[in-house]
Design a protein around this nucleic acid. Structure first.
Lengths: 145, 145
DNA sequence: TCTTGACCTCAAGTTAAGTTCAGGTTTTAC
DNA sequence: GTAAAACCTGAACTTAACTTGAGGTCAAGA
């Protein structure tokens, strides 16, 4: 029934290359059927799917994981709000973690800027856990052990 | 003069593989001289350099860019606090941007969770800038145009 | 009709950041 | 002094996420 989209049209509307859509299909992230001439045809759904993929990528999620997550969606019916929400909830958690991680890193970097620890040897953050430092001081900067 | 470190020792103290140090050297991120038997020898400085490289990588900075930044350091003398600070200042800016970007993404994601926009068609965030949507609605979710 | 643009497949190339391997030399420790 | 551990080089392999290319088919418009 509904609308059928060619690969070129989907590409244009999603802002991705045709080859990318082929690639996503090969990786099992999207799907299509073929018309009489063996050309791909997509349901409107694919637009949202690609948008979600791109969004997740911005969050730093790997395609393989995105594929996993998408496989949690119902195969037969169009996903509901709750379905999508489950996805974005999971990603929201990951995103929070990533943001917190970066903020922690920023704080430590600030500390280093403040005390010059990126070059000096008396920084409180310097060298936390270098058990082999007998040869002389060495930083283990900003690397949690 | 100062201490000389073998590649294995540097690797251990920095928590990276020997091959990684070879690789960094090939890429111009660190340098060494050779002893009589053609083995690499490093100055203590390299420890901090590697620490800085690893930190920058955590910030999401590519090795090529890190190399660029490191090339801003004085070649002849040991870098001063100010030298390092210039580096970390630049990265701090990038880090801020990255954090803000992710927070914006999180806000938009929250909006989508709230309104179910990841699956529904009446979300205020839906479809901002899909000029070709004559065939039917399609999301352009969370992708700034 | 015929030409041009859109599609098709499959293979190979690309970049980043390393790792692994093979074959040979040097150091170190007993 | 000898064996094990560490080092050397250069090349090939790895993963992710695509892109590019070659060679051929299909569809849409003047």
């Amino acid at each position: 029934m509904g609308v059928q989209l060619s690969v070129g049209r989907v590409a244009k509307r999603c802002g991705v290359a045709v080859s990318t859509l082929h690639f996503y299909e090969a990786k099992g992230l999207i799907s299509s059927w073929r018309n009489a001439g063996n050309q791909r045809r997509y349901a409107r759904d694919v637009l949202r799917r690609v948008a979600v993929i791109k969004t997740a990528q911005q969050l730093g999620i790997a395609l393989a994981d995105i594929r996993q997550a998408l496989q949690g969606l119902p195969a037969n019916r169009t996903p509901t709000a709750a379905d999508w929400r489950k996805l974005s909830d999971g990603w929201r958690t990951q995103l929070d973690q990533r943001i917190n991680q970066l903020i922690k890193l920023r704080d430590r970097l600030d500390g280093c800027i403040g005390c010059g620890c990126l070059s000096l040897q008396n920084c409180p953050l310097r060298n936390p856990g270098d058990a082999l430092s007998a040869e002389g001081p060495g930083p283990r900067l900003l690397q949690p052990d």
